[in-house]
């Protein structure tokens, strides 16, 4: 593999990590809001969600930072094109992320015992707005919307909003978030031996599985309209998308039958992994169609090697720490069931 491909693979993997952890988090925000404020179910689902999220929320954010910093590091031109074009949408996304993160911490670590309505609303609303906003960057990457004329980079807003492809990606992002999140939370509720929440979350998971797969198919064909070259590449790797579909079917079957819930979630991750890497691979060599190619916009070789070494060294610290975190909080049944002492 060339350095370019190693670089983009590392970044794509971190974005995948963000996709999974953040989806659980975003969806959890929505479900919390929905069960507690809209349907006025008792707070049980919310408690499950809190127990999982509390120790990990800050980690989620770092995945995103890592991706952005790494992207600019490996491919400095991305800062120039995306950075200039995304000033307004990027700033709005920062505001949403900031409100979400801060209010989450205020509510969880602050002393208010009752869950504040304002907080729940901010948390629920940003849970949907953020994936919608962030996913549009994938739509932009297909080209034709960011233009450079006379050395000035511009984003064509009309083209952007009137494009069905943009909307198909937004819809896919929204339903996937709810699907991934519900799949994970029903597994977690089962581990917590909370039968009631489990039943509720399982229903959500099954409910959102249909729209998810429909949205996938819809996006698939919209790419053909938007960028036939990319679509052609995707067809050449169609096995990845078929593998994704198979994982989806088995995962839903498991949840339907209420068996192997851990495996069901692993399959959900595989489903998205196949689709994610298939999409990413067929997108190459472009990061932004016809403007940023990984080969022409690569950083210098010394920096690339330095970044890759730093990355490998970083993994040696990161992976054991992550395993420790998961063992203490995700796989420790005492903690999951809520028998462990509360926060300091």
């Amino acid at each position: 593999m060339s350095y370019e491909v190693v670089g983009i693979t590392i970044l794509w993997t971190f974005l995948f990590g963000y996709l999974i952890v953040a989806s659980v988090d975003f969806g959890a925000g929505f479900f919390s809001y929905y069960t507690a404020v809209v349907t006025r179910h008792e707070n049980k689902v919310h408690n499950i969600i809190q127990r999982y999220l509390t120790p990990v929320w800050e980690v989620t954010n770092v995945f995103l930072i890592f991706f952005v910093v790494g992207l600019v590091g490996f491919f400095p031109d991305t800062a120039y094109f995306y950075g200039t074009a995304l000033l307004v949408p990027g700033s709005l996304a920062i505001v949403l992320l900031a409100l979400r993160g801060a209010y989450y911490a205020y509510n969880t670590y602050g002393s208010s015992k009752e869950n504040d309505k304002i907080y729940m609303t901010i948390y629920g609303a940003t849970g949907l707005l953020l994936p919608a906003a962030l996913s549009t960057i994938l739509a932009l990457s297909e080209g034709g919307i960011i233009t450079e004329t006379n050395g000035k980079v511009r984003l064509d807003w009309i083209q952007f909003f009137s494009n069905p492809y943009t909307w198909s990606v937004v819809i896919l992002a929204l339903v996937s978030v709810l699907y991934i999140s519900a799949m994970f939370l029903s597994y977690y509720a089962k581990r917590a031996e909370d039968q009631h929440s489990f039943e509720l979350l399982r229903r959500y998971a099954l409910f959102w599985s249909g729209p998810t797969i429909l949205a996938c198919v819809f996006v698939f064909f919209q790419i053909n309209r938007q960028n036939p070259e990319h679509f052609e590449n995707m067809l050449n790797m169609s096995w990845m998308f078929i593998a994704s579909l198979i994982c989806f079917l088995i995962a839903v079957y498991f949840v339907w039958k209420k068996v192997n819930l851990g495996w069901a979630f692993v399959l959900v991750m595989l489903q998205f992994a196949f689709a994610w890497y298939g999409y990413g691979r067929s997108h190459l060599p472009y990061i932004l169609y016809n403007q940023i190619s990984i080969y022409e916009s690569f950083t210098n070789e010394t920096m690339a090697i330095a970044l890759i070494i730093a990355f490998i060294a970083g993994l040696f610290i990161l992976i054991p720490s992550l395993i420790l975190l998961l063992r203490l909080f995700l796989f420790d049944s005492k903690y999951v069931r809520g028998h462990s002492p509360k926060k300091g």
Partner: peptide, 15 residues
């Protein structure tokens, strides 16, 4: 880019 990149690992560990 190197220190910026390494900083994110430091954040990870801290978080």
């Amino acid at each position: 880019a190197l220190p910026l990149f390494m900083e994110t690992f430091a954040f990870f560990v801290e978080a």
